[in-house]
Every structure is written in structure tokens, then in C-alpha cells.
């Protein structure tokens, strides 16, 4: 039986390290058991990376008296996580790290019966913009070149992206509609695979988040052509936005933490304070800069209003796509 004992010792040791110092919240609500920190995507993706980053900041600064237990529930494009939160037996200890499938999945899969507006806003850690990338060997250097090239190829221009009916395909569909482009779209299961196939020139362009394409941008392999942000990005000051080109469209991936429906106000206040500290930490501020995330600070009421706007926008975008 030494086998299991050893393993459990190792696991126990890791939890002990995580829980040793008691957090300094003298009064008010405190978690009574480990906190379910559900991640809306699989291991290794953008949401997963952020969740584990946040967890590491929480633990390094002893911000909670009970550990966060990250669990990947990426199944069904996030449907699994949404159901997990909707049916959470202990809403005070159930949190979700989201991406935009938070909006799209309930719209695309109405049978789930998930209404995200019943969920509890905790904090928006930042929003992740989208950028149009091509390989340097394509010879394309501006967005105008890109449009000309796509039109020349008449349906043979290949772009890759994550999934169908998700962020990447929404952005590509909007761009195609606005410029009357015919693009062959290949869905992948993650941003890393998309970037890899652009680096290997299996596909011709992507709309990766900057964090996914940054390594290849720095090595000079990827060329950014257009940002789908509201304003020009600090990291890419020479890259124009779609808005400058006269189309009122911007699109971001939300990196937020959300509580289960029915979470008590006290618990929500506790988590807002904890993650507010994470947000203000030097580590997170550094992460926002290095990964080109934009800040989007909102209180509870503003978040709720933001959610209902996002749901409407996505409903419209998705219905335009299917036409």
C-alpha cells in the first residue's frame, strides 16, 4: 500500500503548502472548504493559462484561507462548465474562469437551459483583443494587400481558427462580410494548433490573440495586419484597427471570473476583494502588458449591463453568420 500512501503524501504536502498561512480577513464571510475553480476550457489553452496564473498569485500571497482547486471542464465548448455552475450544490464555493463561449454556447445550444444573466459577476481580469496575422513569406504587409490577395484567390485563401461558431470564426465572418471576401475556414481545437499551422504555412492567415502569436511575431515569422480592438494597441502601434477602416466592429475575448448563480452577496464580496488584490498585483499588471490584454474595470451593475449587451451582440453576430 506504500504506493498510494506516497502519492497521497505528495498531494497532501502540496495542499498543505497551499493552505498553511491563514488569510488576513479578520471579519466577514470566509470560505469553509476548498474553492471549486472551474476552467471553461481544456488544459493548456488561454483560459487555463490565466486560471493557473491567478491561482499562483493567490497562493504566493496567501490571499485565501482555503485553496483554489482548478478543474478543467471544457467539454461541449464550455457547456460542461456552464451546467456545472448552474447546478452547483454549493454556489458560495464555485467559481468559473470564462472565455467568450460563456456567451456563445448558451445561444448555440439552447437546450442547455443556461441563462448566464443569473450568474454572479465577480471580476473582469482583462479583455484579450484579436489581431489578423499572416506569415512573412506570404509577402503581404498591409491589410489592403490582404484583401487584394484573398479576392485574387477566389475562395482558395485558407484561414484557421479555434472551433466553429466561436470567437475566431465570428471575427473572420464579420471581416469577410464587411469586405466581401471568400475565405476557406478550417476549425482547430485550440489557438496553439492554429498558430503552429500558420508557422508551418499549412494555412495562410489567422486571427490569434496576441498571446498566442507573440512568440512568432517576435521571431519575425508572423506579420500583424489589423487589430480588432477599439484603439490601436500599445504593443503594435503601427497596426491599424478595423474601426479606423470605417467598420464599427471590435471584438475581445473576456478573461473574467464568474460566480455560480445564487452565490451569497457576502461570498461574492469576499471573492471580489481577493481577485481585486490579484488584479492590482505587480504580477498581474505585468501579465496584462506582456500578453497585450486590455483592462476593463467594471462594478457589479456595469458587468450585468455588459453581459446583456454581449448576449445581444453575439445573438446578432451568430444569426448573421448562419445566413
Amino acid at each position: 500500500m506504500k504506493l498510494t500512501k506516497r502519492l497521497f503524501l505528495a498531494l497532501a504536502a502540496s495542499t498543505t503548502i497551499a493552505t498553511l498561512p491563514i488569510a488576513a480577513f479578520a471579519d466577514g464571510w470566509q470560505p469553509k472548504r476548498p474553492i471549486d475553480f472551474t476552467i471553461m476550457a481544456g488544459a493548456g489553452g488561454g483560459a487555463d493559462q490565466i486560471a493557473r496564473f491567478i491561482q499562483s498569485v493567490v497562493e504566493a500571497n496567501d490571499l485565501t484561507n482555503r485553496p483554489l482547486i482548478p478543474t478543467n471542464r471544457g467539454g461541449g465548448s464550455g457547456a460542461e462548465s456552464l451546467l456545472h455552475l448552474k447546478d452547483a450544490r454549493d454556489p458560495d464555493h464555485t467559481l468559473l474562469v470564462t472565455l467568450n463561449s460563456f456567451y456563445t454556447t448558451p445561444i448555440r445550444q439552447e437546450a442547455l437551459g443556461v441563462d448566464i444573466e443569473t450568474f454572479t459577476p465577480i471580476i473582469m481580469m482583462g479583455v484579450d483583443p484579436f489581431v489578423l496575422w499572416v506569415h512573412k513569406d506570404s509577402g503581404i504587409t498591409t491589410f489592403e494587400d490582404f484583401v487584394t490577395k484573398v479576392k485574387e484567390m477566389d475562395g482558395e485563401f485558407v484561414m484557421g481558427g479555434t472551433g466553429t461558431g466561436q470567437e475566431d470564426s465570428i471575427v473572420i465572418a464579420y471581416m469577410s462580410g464587411a469586405y466581401d471576401l471568400k475565405i476557406k475556414y478550417i476549425p482547430y481545437d485550440g489557438g496553439g494548433a492554429v498558430a503552429k499551422d500558420l508557422a508551418g504555412k499549412q494555412i495562410m492567415a489567422t486571427v490569434n490573440n496576441p498571446s498566442e502569436a507573440k512568440g512568432f511575431y517576435e521571431s519575425g515569422d508572423f506579420v500583424p495586419l489589423l487589430a480588432f480592438s477599439d484603439e490601436r494597441m500599445d504593443a503594435y502601434p503601427d497596426v491599424p484597427t478595423l474601426k479606423e477602416k470605417g467598420h464599427d466592429f471590435s471584438y475581445y475575448n473576456q478573461r473574467a471570473i464568474v460566480g455560480a448563480p445564487g452565490m451569497s452577496d457576502e461570498a461574492a464580496a469576499y471573492y471580489r476583494e481577493v481577485f481585486g488584490k490579484v488584479y492590482d498585483s505587480e504580477k498581474w499588471q505585468g501579465y496584462l502588458v506582456s500578453e497585450s490584454l486590455s483592462p476593463l474595470i467594471m462594478d457589479e451593475a456595469e458587468t450585468r449591463a455588459y453581459w446583456s449587451r454581449q448576449v445581444q451582440n453575439h445573438r446578432q453576430l451568430l444569426s448573421e453568420m448562419s445566413n
Binding site: 493548456g44 496564473f53 499562483s56 498558430a195 512568440g215 521571431s219 506582456s290
Partner: peptide, 28 residues
């Protein structure tokens, strides 16, 4: 060499590199 995960485990290691302040990619 590329900053691309070859397996689920290396995907988590890549996340770790970002936490530690490194930029995975061809320059690494």
C-alpha cells in the same frame, strides 16, 4: 523551439513559462 505544446503536459509547462515571465516561442 517553437513555443507549441507537443502534448497536454507540455501545454501546462508552457503556461508555467508564462507565469515565470518567459515568452515561449522561437526566440526562447
Amino acid at each position: 523551439t517553437l513555443g507549441i505544446p507537443g502534448s497536454p503536459t507540455t501545454a501546462i509547462l508552457l503556461g508555467g513559462m508564462v507565469i515565470w515571465g518567459l515568452t515561449p516561442g522561437p526566440r526562447l
